[in-house]
Design a protein around this nucleic acid. Structure first.
Lengths: 192, 192, 192, 192
DNA sequence: TATGAATGAGGATTCATTCAT
DNA sequence: GATGAATGAATCCTCATTCAT
């Protein structure tokens, strides 16, 4: 599964052949089909397993007793750092989740589901913060979309493709990146 | 080319068969190959043409004589609105550019190039704003990454997949979306 | 037809495309089909026309009033020289006739017919020489096969592919080659 | 490989379809590609293997301790008989080598190489005979070209296409043919 | 006569999947 | 459990030929 994950992430689903996977794994084609029903099945399993792990991180990140804005910032920082760290350790999985993959619909749905779960966790948190008067009462769905866009985009640039040349982003640690992202999250371009 | 673009966006490169494209287009397979050297060639041509149009929008969006922060906000609003409008009118193209497709490397490079061009335009603008003391002096590469992440994420949710249920995002106009995105851009979650 | 002949000889029948022929000729595909019914038709026409010319040479070569062996040698020399000269001026045609070409059967039959005609002319001549006691009474069919093998092989090596390295054969004139071939014809390896 | 060889020889390379080969062989198309990389690859393999066998015959044919002309004639007869026997048993292979096929260049080169090897073996032998004063000192490259032309031409007529009608050639045994060819080789038309 | 766009049958090759051993 | 040879449907692309203009 690790090998398949890597190849899917590197070359995409269709360009990854079963024969490639098994060659790398040092087993025969037949063996592959002993463990997995089909190519689609292994992709699905990979995503499902990744989803679980990722969601664990996101949900853990919210064990916070919010109080002041300061607390909210702290909590956000903690969550982002956890997320970035997880992403760094699961680069290939994140590539699939962030960039998607051209597959059977079943696999795409699984990926979508993962992302929905995360964004909903974000949203729930924002709603709570609004209730506690820690954030101005704005459309939480939109705000969580902003948040997740930020996190996804930064993650992708950090791990895979810093679009602009000589970007500083690649060299940052998960902690630094989390801090800067949170700053932008709360204060925007103009923020301190 | 339109039909091919649609199919690539809907089903991906590999699941789109030449036979599908020509059936939809009402011509024969041979005719396809009279106009395009290969499947790769038509994909490349689609991207190249789209890139041109998109870049035109981005570059036009920057004909601004910046002065106050107010001006910068206005300019940003104008650009985002143009971008969102273009995206709305070129949904399928944007899908390819935002989500990528699994293709021959040549096509992927062309897509990457497009995104790089846009992010660099963003970055140049931020640098200028910093020089004019309109923005605090922070890492422009990172700021433009934030910006582009925002725009890409919001666009994707607006046009294709509002991750969370009953999201309000789908119903907004390009103008509204631009305004809200700019607000987040400059002031973050805490902003007015 | 000249262009087609060249391409058939150089690349073979199947690797020569109508589109190649017409591009070289500077006309359109449609025009080709105004003048020739099909690819097979042009090949056939080329062979037929070549056959006529070649047969003329062979038949002319036999306007001899044989007498002594000396006369027979002379006559043979004359014929071979004519043949070699013709071959030199019709290299591409000879390539088709000597090496054959992978085509529709109709074309192959036409080529075979040409070669039969020539070998029969050779045979008739040998028979006459035997009647006149100029040659020992041996199987004329076999002798003419020897003769034609000689001529064909030498021609091919002279015009296209001297198999061995630094072969002297390429540099010889038609006259020289004819002389040496005739010597071998009459006297073999041991001959003067 | 045998089936492919037959079909290549009978119909030529381009008119032989993979689907024909596998149908005859009673396997599926996929199976073909399990054993051969491509159509070109099987053709190449066929030629290479044939070349080896043929060269073995030619080289063995030269284990002679030459002495008198008589010896040389004997040696020649032995070699020719071996060659004709091999050709008779490998009719299809010989067809490819003698008549060539229109193929990818790689295959054509392999065929050419085979013929060069044989002619060079002939030539080496003639040179030795000249050194030993068994043959008059004439251009060995030309003489070997004569020899090989003879052998090739006679072989082709014996196995495939006796050009003239009611030719006696078809009915001869390898031994008889070798004897007659050698006679012509050494003594020409006038020989005893 | 000439054009060149259009056609579509045909053919090589790929690759997920099966299955006897 | 493991193997790897075998399968054949699927797909891209070619090219001789046609035909409206």
């Amino acid at each position: 599964m690790q090998i398949a994950l890597q190849q899917f992430a590197k070359y995409g689903y269709h360009r990854t052949k079963i024969s490639d996977i098994v060659r790398e794994a040092g087993v025969s084609q037949g063996t592959f089909y002993w463990y997995f029903k089909s190519k689609e099945a292994i992709a699905l399993e990979i995503i499902k397993k990744g989803q679980e792990q990722l969601l664990k991180v996101v949900l853990q990140g919210y064990r916070q007793s919010a109080g002041s804005v300061q607390d909210a910032v702290k909590a956000s920082e903690k969550l982002f750092e956890d997320l970035f760290t997880f992403a760094e350790q699961n680069k290939y999985l994140m590539k699939l989740i962030l960039k998607g993959i051209e597959t059977e619909d079943s696999v795409q749905e699984a990926i979508l589901e993962t992302r929905i779960n995360i964004e909903e966790a974000f949203q729930k948190n924002i709603k709570r913060a609004i209730e506690l008067n820690m954030l101005p009462a704005k459309d939480p769905a939109l705000q969580s979309a902003f948040l997740m866009s930020l996190v996804e985009g930064i993650m992708a640039r950090w791990l895979f493709e810093p679009l602009v040349k000589d970007s500083t982003i690649k060299k940052k640690t998960a902690k630094e990146l989390a801090a800067e992202t949170v700053r932008f999250e709360f204060f925007g371009l103009l923020g301190i």
